[in-house]
Design a binder for these strands. Structure first.
Length: 271
DNA sequence: CCGGACGCCTGTCGGC
DNA sequence: TGCCGACAGGCGTCCG
């Protein structure tokens, strides 16, 4: 579900309500996520102050006094700031109760999300250790893509969605990026030239920045920390448009399954 | 090391 | 109307 723009939007929505606040309690009602929510958190978190928050790939990291809370939204997760008396539904896994009485509520119907507690530097956590660069930072560019893709025989779409190569790109933005760059999703990553790697990297940045400016993409259940949906859906060129006309050449967009993910592209405009 | 497939879950939608 | 399979924004793990 949430890719970089949605996770970043979530962070921006919740952070102002969290910074400087002390945790009053953790109300854990449904610990079953991808990995069980550590029960020790209910004793560990109260009293700790939240003094920072950032995003790494699709992970959210909240800095507390004694460590970091690491959150992943999986496919259907969301984090929202809600008033203290908001009734909890069936998929509301936990509330972080703040001293102001406001709640940070984690909701996740499909339970692919997760929560971890990290004492040391969060980058050393096994889930973060082998992550590639952030796509919007300068370390990520055409030159980097070119270097990393040499010898790789995977389709370029799979390559872009590999978090060891670059973080934050999921199925929606991989499709959109390839369309914008004019690159066929099945093209072998290692056979893409330097110039097209430049185009690809530029397209990644453009798509993510534009999506961010729209507050992300809401297909069904994504909401930002303030409860509002994202509006990038109206700007999608290919994702969800299989069979509909290409916006550039009007031919019907084609669809295929790659690694069990729907892939949409234009046979004429992407090579 | 690399590439591909699987499975974890619930909800929704389209076809019969 | 109801049932059933396919599919949905991710990713760690396993297998060849």
């Amino acid at each position: 579900m949430p890719e970089l723009p949605e996770v970043e939007t979530t962070l921006r929505g919740i952070l102002p309500h969290l910074l400087g606040q002390r945790v009053a309690a953790l109300r854990l009602r449904q610990p079953a996520l991808r990995w069980p929510v550590p029960g020790e958190l209910t004793e560990l978190l109260p009293g700790q102050r939240i003094h920072g928050g950032r995003r790494r790939g699709k992970y959210l990291l909240l800095a507390l006094d004694d460590g970091h809370l690491l959150l992943h939204l999986g496919m259907s997760g969301s984090l929202r700031i809600v008033p203290a008396d908001t009734p909890a539904g069936r998929h509301d896994h936990f509330d972080l109760v703040l001293e102001t009485g406001v709640l940070l509520r984690f909701t996740d119907p499909r339970r692919f999300g997760s929560v971890h507690w990290v004492r040391g530097p969060p980058e050393a956590h096994p889930l973060l250790r082998s992550l590639g660069p952030e796509p919007l930072e300068d370390a990520f560019g055409g030159e980097y893509l070119y270097r990393r893709s040499r010898g790789r025989r995977v389709p370029v779409k799979s390559f872009l969605m590999d978090s060891r190569v670059v973080v934050g790109i999921g199925n929606i933005y991989a499709n959109e990026t390839l369309y914008l760059a004019g690159v066929h999703p099945l093209r072998t990553a290692g056979r893409i030239g330097a110039a097209r790697c430049d185009r690809l990297a530029a397209a990644v940045k453009t798509v993510l920045v534009d999506a961010l400016a729209q507050g992300g993409t809401t297909l069904r259940d994504f909401v930002g920390g303030d409860g509002r949906p994202g509006y990038f859906r109206q700007r999608l060129s290919v994702y969800g448009r299989g069979g509909m006309p290409c916006l550039q050449c009007a031919r019907p967009l084609r669809e295929l399954r790659l690694a069990q993910r729907t892939t949409v592209y234009c046979q004429r405009c992407q090579r």
